[in-house]
Amino acid sequence: MTSVLTFDEVFQNLTRIVADALRVNPATITPDTNLIVDLDAESIDLVDIRFRIEEAYGFQIEQRAFVTGVAGDMPVGELVNLITMRRLVEFVMRRKGEAA
């Protein structure tokens, strides 16, 4: 039987991952936190976060899939507004669901 991941569970886990990757206080991270605007993430940080998610959840993510998956396949110029924790959690839940 595959247990279903709840939003809160994934959010808590991703908060820890993102806080570790970006060396920020996890208490400052909410579902609306934007990784780029609020946490000043750059491209290498997204690569780092992708690797940490792969390690934690045991699935592989192409870097491109990761960015489009999180950003909803929007043009690059708009990524900045779309890489939020909420989108990240939904992406991981979707991928984990596909894997199950």
């Binding site: 290498i44 690569v47 780092d48 992708r50 690797f51 792969e54 592989q60």
Partner: peptide
């Protein structure tokens, strides 16, 4: 490819 952190080359 899976285990080496991708930032290692930096």
């Amino acid at each position: 490819m899976e285990r080496i952190h991708p930032l290692t080359p930096l």
